[in-house]
Structures are given as structure tokens and as C-alpha cells.
Simulated scan of single mutants.
Amino acid sequence: MTVLEELAQRVQFDLESAGLTPRADGGAGGFAVYLLDGQVHVDWFTHERLDSADLHSPGHPDDLFADTTRRYETATTAMQGALDSILTSFGYRLQSRGFGSGYTIA
């Protein structure tokens, strides 16, 4: 196992220890730790229900999705802050990515 793989496993364990749920297949939300371009990345994903916010306008006939965009933005903002706080408290140095969301472990 490489040093980066060990770091990714430790980050995964620390986030689970803090009570966060890893993302599962099938559209469920949660965090994901993965290796890309020789770096460890951490992202937060909402459930597919909120991911589809852009497919439904507030004028949808049954208003089922009327607040989906607001909920998506609120959940994403809150969880990015939570990831930042939790990972920092475990001693990780984070680099915020310039696009989308998530962090690279420095």
C-alpha cells in the first residue's frame, strides 16, 4: 500500500469516526475520499433527490421540488464547512479547489 493510499484510508476513518457517512452507490449522499493525480481528495455529495434540483423548476405542478435548489445549496454549504472543520481538527491541511466543492489534502 502506498503512502497516499494509507493517507486516504486514514482520512476515511477519521471522517467516519466523526460520524459522517461514506457515499454509497445508488444515489445516496455522503462523503467520498479518493486519489486523483497523485493527491488525496475529499468531496461531499448530496442525495440524488437534491442533485436533480436543476431538472425541476419552482413552478413544477405539484411543487414537490419547489425548494430543492435552496435545500441543495444550504446542505452543500453546511457540509463543506463541516468537512473543513472536522478535517482541520484532525490536523489535515486543506486546499480548497477552485471549482465545485471539496478539498485536496495538502
Rank of each mutant, 00 (worst) to 15 (best):
residue 2 T to D: 15
residue 3 V to A: 15
residue 3 V to W: 05
residue 7 L to Y: 03
residue 12 Q to N: 10
residue 12 Q to H: 13
residue 14 D to I: 04
residue 14 D to R: 07
residue 15 L to I: 07
residue 15 L to H: 00
residue 16 E to S: 13
residue 19 G to W: 08
residue 24 A to L: 05
residue 25 D to H: 12
residue 27 G to D: 07
residue 29 G to M: 01
residue 33 V to H: 00
residue 34 Y to N: 04
residue 34 Y to L: 06
residue 34 Y to F: 13
residue 36 L to Q: 14
residue 38 G to Y: 02
residue 39 Q to G: 06
residue 39 Q to I: 03
residue 40 V to E: 02
residue 43 D to N: 10
residue 44 W to F: 04
residue 45 F to K: 05
residue 46 T to N: 11
residue 47 H to C: 01
residue 47 H to A: 04
residue 47 H to Q: 09
residue 48 E to P: 02
residue 48 E to M: 01
residue 49 R to G: 05
residue 50 L to P: 01
residue 51 D to M: 09
residue 55 L to T: 04
residue 56 H to N: 02
residue 56 H to S: 10
residue 57 S to P: 03
residue 58 P to R: 00
residue 60 H to D: 02
residue 61 P to Y: 15
residue 61 P to W: 15
residue 62 D to V: 05
residue 63 D to F: 13
residue 64 L to C: 05
residue 65 F to R: 15
residue 66 A to G: 10
residue 67 D to V: 05
residue 70 R to A: 12
residue 76 T to K: 04
residue 78 A to F: 03
residue 84 D to W: 02
residue 84 D to S: 08
residue 85 S to D: 15
residue 85 S to K: 14
residue 86 I to L: 12
residue 86 I to C: 02
residue 88 T to S: 10
residue 90 F to H: 13
residue 92 Y to D: 08
residue 94 L to M: 08
residue 95 Q to G: 08
residue 97 R to S: 11
residue 98 G to Y: 03
residue 100 G to L: 10
residue 101 S to Y: 14
residue 101 S to W: 07
residue 101 S to V: 02
residue 103 Y to G: 12
residue 104 T to E: 13
residue 105 I to V: 14
residue 105 I to N: 00
